[in-house]
């Protein structure tokens, strides 16, 4: 029996040589993401925008345009109507007036449901969310704060365990991943809700893992090969970790594709976000986190015993 080897032994790909291309691609992606965020914005779900969201299920696939025109005729404001699962489920989002009157939501809900039931008597309300403007504001604030503080906390830990350049590198890579993931949400108009925040956090976690694994090898090699130039050293480290990177990313990707295909509508948004994140995160660990170390002047002396404060971290193994 022969075991599968995804990556041949002793690869020697000049990753760093392509770093300017990598940076170019990165900058273009970031620019596109920011442009998308600025012009199109995120398609906020009721969690962040406030309002009423209903999911109505149909026995037979419904005519979405018909549903749209029926709801449009109610004159309750600009409703967003989307089909899920080949129109057997239709999601309806309606902004509510600022006054946060719970009865208003109830009235709108009854109106919408009534209009639909008139044409489709077998329709049923599958789920319904009402979030007032006050709560949605808090959700945005809490979510953003948690993500930002988590990223900074992590960067500080890496700074302590490695060197400050590594902390900066990891942080930049994380920001990169999050911005691009947000950009994809802006361009695809996928609904951005609280679950997507969880997916973004997963991306942060995964990308971080990937970055640290590469950094760890760079640190190890810096101690081992004192004379080596930084560029070949980063290349060597990335190549040494390539089998692992490919294996882990592929395994995760395979698992996520299973979840995307068979996980149903509830899981779709965030598993997709996670898959995108894994691809972007793997890329950023190599092309963002690596080159930053070079630019920030990490060299073999970064982990010398003379470096006070870092002394106890230096490996004593041969």
């Amino acid at each position: 029996m022969r075991l599968v080897k995804l990556v041949p032994d002793n690869t020697n790909i000049g990753f760093v040589r392509w770093r300017f291309v990598g940076v170019g691609v990165t900058l273009i992606l970031i620019a596109l993401s920011i442009f998308g965020l600025a012009t199109r914005g995120l398609n906020y779900g009721v969690d962040f925008a406030g309002g009423l969201k209903m999911e109505v299920g149909f026995e037979q696939p419904a005519n979405v345009d018909d549903v749209r025109s029926r709801i449009g005729a109610l004159g309750i404001g600009s409703a967003t109507i989307q089909e899920i699962d080949s129109a057997e489920i239709i999601s309806i989002r309606v902004p509510l007036q600022e006054d946060d009157n719970p009865d208003a939501a109830k009235a709108v809900e009854a109106q919408v449901l009534g209009a639909i039931m008139e044409a489709y008597p077998d329709a049923s309300l599958r789920s319904q969310d009402v979030v007032s403007g006050k709560v949605s504001g808090e959700l945005i604030r809490d979510g953003t704060l948690a993500a930002i503080v988590a990223m900074i906390g992590v960067a500080i830990f890496i700074w302590v365990r490695f060197e400050w350049q590594f902390g900066v590198g990891a942080l930049v890579a994380l920001v990169h991943d999050v911005v691009i993931a947000l950009g994809i949400f802006a361009w695809t108009s996928l609904e951005f809700n609280l679950n997507i925040i969880a997916a973004l956090l997963t991306i942060i976690g995964y990308s971080l893992n990937d970055t640290i694994v590469n950094y760890d090898r760079i640190r190890e090699n810096l101690r081992k090969y004192r004379k080596m130039e930084m560029i070949p050293l980063v290349d060597l480290s990335v190549n040494e970790m390539l089998a692992r990177t490919v294996m882990t990313s592929l395994t995760m990707a395979v698992a996520l594709i299973a979840l995307i295909v068979y996980g149903g509508e509830a899981l779709f948004g965030f598993t997709l976000a996670m898959l995108i994140g894994i691809i972007v995160g793997t890329y950023s660990s190599i092309y963002v986190a690596g080159p930053i170390l070079i630019w920030l002047g990490v060299g073999p002396d970064s982990f010398l015993p003379e470096d006070t404060g870092a002394a106890e971290r230096v490996s004593t193994r041969p």
Binding site: A146, A150, G153, V154, L201, G205
Partner: peptide, 17 residues
């Protein structure tokens, strides 16, 4: 690193987080 991130999220985040 992931635990640090998780603890901060638990501390600051709301429901789903």
């Amino acid at each position: 690193t992931n635990i640090i991130a998780a603890i901060i999220m638990f501390w600051l985040g709301s429901g789903p987080i």
